[in-house]
Amino acid sequence: MKLSEQDRQLLNRVQQDFPLHPEPFKVLSDQLGVPEQEILDRLRSLEQQNAISRFGAVFNHHRAGASTLAALAIPEHEIEEVAAFVSSFAEVNHNYQREHEFNLWFVVNATDQKGVEKVLNQISATYEYPLLDLPMVKGYHIDLGFPLW
């Protein structure tokens, strides 16, 4: 879908620093000079058009629990089966098939490190393929949104 210039600006404004205020859209209305009702209508319409994936707080997985990015090198013909097994864990919240020798990439989140290890151990005990376990060492820009252009 093509965004109108107004919607593009609105989306860029609300990606971060959303007001923590009882009437956040009223605050935005004052800042943007757009009536509160219009902001709400436009955001609802964008939501209906599936242009919004989420509205709310983005939690710091690292601080809220433990997480890692893991990858498996799986023979092509088995990838579907292994991918379904990996996705079946509630702790796995992203799972992508990628074009590389390591062809399945997934993020494991748990309340603590033991929980992460438990999932990885279960996966490697079931499928003995090369496994990468790449927890974050340092974040340089983490999910802060980025401007649409």
Partner: peptide
């Protein structure tokens, strides 16, 4: 008020990275 205050503290403590809206980049092209 209690919720807002708590979210503010979680933001300051780094438990919340940001409050806002996440566009569906794929749908937006």
């Amino acid at each position: 008020d209690e919720l807002i205050e708590l979210m503010q503290k979680m933001l300051s403590a780094g438990l919340i990275r940001r409050v806002g809206l996440v566009p569906n980049h794929y749908a937006l092209g």
